[in-house]
Every structure is written in C-alpha cells, then in structure tokens.
Design a protein around this nucleic acid. Structure first.
Lengths: 209, 209
DNA sequence: CACTGGCTATAACGCCCGTCATAGTCTAGC
DNA sequence: GCTAGACTATGACGGGCGTTATAGCCAGTG
C-alpha cells in the first residue's frame, strides 16, 4: 500500500479541471506520499514520476512550472484530504474528530512501517530561498490553518470559549505533528499514543468543565 | 547570527576528545544549524564546509565515515545542548524548565527569521534506507528521549504521577516540535505562542491540582 | 483520409552531489 | 634543521539533479 492519503484518489477534482487525466491525480497523490517520506528537496521529479508509473515527460506536461507546482498541489491535495476527513468526523463532536485525526496518522505511520509521516510537515521544515515564500510553503501554512479552524469551530460549537478553542486546536495539530515525527525516529508508536491519551483527557475535561 | 545552538561552541568536549580541533566543533555546530534549516538530505557536505569556513577536505579528515557521521554528531551536539539547558532550568521547577525550553526555540525561530527550526526534527522526517536504522536517526530518537525524561523527572519530583509525567513530557516535546514547524510555514509565532499558553496552564493545573 | 492536439519517449544541457586520491603546507618535537 | 603527522588544497570519479527540446505515437474529429 502506498499511503492512506494517496489511496484516496477519487473523482471530484480540486478546482476547475473539468475533465480527465487519471494519471495527473496519481502523480499528485504519489508526490504527497513520497514527499511525506523523503522530504521535499530530497525527492526528485524522476522518483516522483517512477512512483506514479508515469513518464518523466508527463510530469512536465501536467505541471509545466516544474517541481514547485507539483509540490504545491501535493500539499494542497493532502491538506484537503485530511480536512475532508476531519470535517466529516467532527460532526460527531470534538472528541470523535480528534480520534479520527489521530487514527488517520496512526494508520499512515504504521502501514508505512514508520517510513511515512505528514507531507505538510515535511514541506514546512525546509528552508525557503532567501526572502521568498514558495507556493508549497504557503500551501502548507494553509493546510495547518484549515485543520486548526475546523477543530476550533467544533470546540466552540460545544461550548468552549473562542480563545481557548483556538489554543486547543493549535495544541492538537502541533502535538500530533510532532508526535508523528518522534514516532518515526523512535520506530515506536509510544509518542503518538501518549499524546493521544493526554489530548483526549484534556479535551474531555474542557468539554464538561 | 548563525543560530542559538550553534553559538554555544565552547570548551568542554562531548566525550573522550582530549585535545584540539576548534574547527571540528565549528563544523559540527554549523552542521546542526544548517540541517535545522534545510533538512539532512538537502544539505551537502560542500555547503557544510563552506558554512563552517572549513575546507571540504577537512570534513573528511575529521569525519572519515562521511556525511552520516557528521550528521550523527550534529544531532547529538544539538540534542546535548538542549538537554543541558533543560537540565539546568528544570532545577527551578517544571514550569521554569518549560519556559526555558519554549524560549530557546522561540529565539532560534525568530533570530533566523523563520528559517531555522529543530535539527532533531529535521533528521526525524527523512526516510531511512530500506530496513536500516541510520545512526543519525538513532541519535534523534535518543535526543527526544532525553528531553522527555528530563521533563518527566522534574514533573515527578513535583508530585505528578509517573505515567502522567511521561505523558505530559511527551506532549510537551511533541507539541513544541510541531509548533516550531508550523511557525516556519506560517511565518508567525502564533502557533508556538498558543501552544506555550496551553502547556503552561495545563502544567500549572496539574501541579497544584 | 488527413490532421490536430494530448500524451509519451528519448536525449541532452549544465550543474552539483558524495567520495576518494594525491600532493602540498604548516607546526612540534627532537 | 629535519622529520612526522596533522591539516589543507585541488581535482577528479561516476552519477543524479531540474529542466528543456525534439520527435513520435495515437486517439478523435472533419
């Protein structure tokens, strides 16, 4: 299996894209997966193409602006996929959403045998060119922001004060992202499990406090 | 300025190393800084040497096993530097230690204008070669483990139950690491500030709860 | 049938990579 | 002064990088 996020290649398109190109989406999804493993700068376009079983020429056909464009779309793709899941599961309340968020990442780390993580984080930890703000990095910031807003809104809907809700949402996203990386280094799920436990009791306490 | 961690190049050596080589330490410290910006695979030995104003040949003189050895020492160097600060400040209690931990990373992110982060995290998010466990990744896991243990022990010393202490320590390290990355993506200190607030009230509550 | 336009195949461009080998320089101790 | 050994300088090695150019294939339309 090539990654939980990447396996969600379905119809539905991201923006205007009226037609076609099943391989285009395959490339984007594969890029998200590969970037989540290797990091952005360490992943070559040739690897990306091979991973998606697409010819190198096709990547420049679909993404004429090159690697940056592909990376940006990959980050948006992963960010959107996670946001969709989060939005759906948060309907059953903040704790249910939190659990879905946690088990989503848990699945990615375990199924990849500690080799894959979060592509959004991977893009976030690479230095941008002096004084610039590459689109992929902006997309990463937007993904984090989306997740936080979804979580915060769910908390607010369940009676948590606005400021506190934003704070808790940031804590959730940050600690889960950090824990994923720690799990990969330690080759153990303990960090994410411990963080999950702490977050669950914290949220539960805030909700009926 | 070249990074808070890297600027701590002082006498004192890490292990046996009885003598010499000021430039050896400069290379290691510079490597920690550069890796924290660019990531491991994306940082070349030539850049590392130039960054430390050392000739390329010297890197292979001091680190005959090549890039992996240098990366490993850089991770250990950074991990040890943070652990030393943590150990010192935790003497004044868990909240004081937490504050020091937070403001240490805060300084690194701000002084680098959101370009540097945590070298330990940077190494953790790169895929190891199939079935292997590179020494640098092991060093990253050890650094995380050290920080967690220091925090957990301080909490225990102040009356927190053992399991809870380990959980809180994991939450602290994970959320701070994640928040650093989010700050870089957003080019804003808000994530780390929010996480700091949440962690402080959480710890304070646990301590006199 | 010819033709157009989306996709692929292949090769090349200059550049940088990790690593190694070799020869040179400098300094300490005899 | 001379030799040994720590460090530096330089250049090469094969290979992968991002990107571009060019030509070929192969539907679907007229």
């Amino acid at each position: 299996m090539t990654g939980v996020i990447a396996s969600g290649v379905r119809r539905g398109s991201t923006a205007v894209a009226k037609s076609s190109a099943p391989s285009r989406e395959r490339i984007v999804a594969g890029a998200a997966d590969l970037i989540s493993r290797r990091g952005l700068n360490a992943t070559s376009i040739r690897e990306l193409a091979k991973h998606a079983k697409a010819p190198l020429g096709s990547t420049y056909h679909y993404f004429p602006e090159g690697k940056g464009q592909l990376a940006t779309e990959a980050v948006r793709y992963a960010g959107g996929a996670v946001a969709r899941i989060l939005r759906r599961e948060l309907d059953a309340g903040p704790v249910a959403g939190l659990r879905a968020f946690l088990s989503l990442w848990r699945g990615i780390v375990i199924e990849s045998d500690f080799r894959a993580g979060c592509p959004v984080l991977a893009v976030s930890v690479e230095e941008p060119p002096a004084g610039e703000m590459p689109p992929a990095l902006t997309a990463a910031a937007e993904a984090f922001e989306d997740w936080e807003q979804l979580l915060a809104e769910a908390l607010r809907k369940h009676g948590v004060d606005g400021d506190q809700a934003r704070g808790l949402a940031a804590l959730i996203v940050a600690s889960v992202e950090g824990a994923i990386a720690m799990c990969r280094a330690k080759r153990s799920m303990q960090p994410l499990d411990r963080v999950a436990r702490q977050l669950e009791t914290l949220i539960a306490g805030v909700l009926d406090g």
